[in-house]
């Protein structure tokens, strides 16, 4: 039955197959060649800087400075060793990973139950509460940096990774509530009613029935919060004081000051800061492209 169903071409496919069968005229072919030329040239412009970054990180510093356009002859990983140990990139990566993962986890943990209630129940004030959370989508939270600074100071949390985690998690709540409450709203009622008849408690219904169903929304939130937090420079620049607690972007700034002349190591540092994001992107391209264009393809 399902096999039969899959074989029937969808209506939307028909015009495309029709178009594919049509031969291109010479004029159309010329336009196509021009178009491909444009696309490939810009692909080079988009990729070349990152390619140079990777290639130069694999050459010795003397080579990088004497021949800016050269290619690596043999694989030279010494700049990575320099960045990782001498410039304590190991510490920065650990701090960044720790802070980013903890912040995203905390954000999801507090936003999930709130989104569940806001997405599935209507009560007096629920509309106001939703608007209250969603207004944060447009608030430039950085402008509150001084009060945040003194607030964390009063908790003894200046130069504390926990303080950074709290600020990051809070800044993600509007987006998380926005995505997850919409998802909860779309789930069918029957599921929780069946569980309720079976005598499951409200917490159990939430944790065992509803949360597993919104996994796609959780994935979107995780991917989309991870990137800006991993890259964030402003908050750790203001809030962190000791090198041992720096996240990658602040560490990078210090590194660029201290290793000014060791270009090969500088490139290696940039690669280290970028690699996790590239891996994430290639693993989740589909979600990212879909998320960036959410609501556009009507």
């Amino acid at each position: 039955m399902t096999v039969l169903h899959e074989r029937v071409p969808r209506v939307a496919d028909r015009p495309r197959t029709g178009r594919r069968a049509r031969r291109r005229t010479p004029r159309e072919r010329a336009v196509l060649i021009l178009a491909l030329l444009l696309l490939w040239s810009y692909a080079v412009v988009a990729l070349a800087p990152m390619l140079v970054m990777v290639l130069d990180s694999l050459r010795s510093n003397a080579q990088v400075l004497s021949d800016p356009l050269g290619l690596p002859g043999s694989l030279d990983l010494s700049s990575y060793r320099t960045a990782w140990t001498e410039a304590s990139f190991g510490t920065y990566v650990r701090n960044s990973a720790l802070v980013t993962i903890a912040a995203v986890a905390l954000d999801v943990c507090v936003s999930l139950p709130a989104s569940y209630v806001l997405g599935r129940y209507q009560f007096r004030g629920s509309g106001v509460l939703i608007a209250y959370f969603l207004s944060g989508l447009m608030l430039p939270i950085r402008l509150g940096i001084l009060p945040i600074f003194y607030l964390l100071g009063s908790f003894g949390m200046i130069d504390s990774r926990l303080g950074l985690v709290l600020v990051y998690a809070a800044s993600g709540i509007p987006f998380s509530v926005f995505i997850m409450s919409a998802f909860f709203r779309g789930l069918p009622r029957e599921l929780e009613e069946a569980a309720r008849i079976d005598g499951a408690s409200e917490f159990r219904i939430f944790a065992r029935v509803m949360v597993p169903l919104v996994r796609p929304a959780i994935a979107t939130v995780v991917v989309f919060r991870f990137v800006p937090l991993w890259n964030d420079f402003f908050f750790p620049l203001v809030l962190m004081r000791t090198t041992g607690k720096y996240t990658l972007p602040v560490g990078l700034t210090q590194f660029f000051g201290e290793f000014q002349t060791n270009w090969s190591a500088l490139f290696a540092g940039l690669v280290i800061a970028t690699l996790p994001l590239i891996v994430l992107f290639l693993a989740a391209t589909k979600q990212i492209v879909a998320g960036l264009t959410a609501g556009m393809g009507k």
Binding site: P113, Y116, V117, F133, I141, G144, I173, V177
Partner: peptide
């Protein structure tokens, strides 16, 4: 009561670290 338990953590965190600092500024 259950609804309040579900809402309070997000509400507090968001209010304390996003809304309060901006109003305070």
């Amino acid at each position: 009561r259950t609804a309040v338990y579900f809402l309070v953590p997000a509400f507090l965190l968001y209010t304390l670290f996003v809304v309060y600092p901006l109003l305070s500024a």
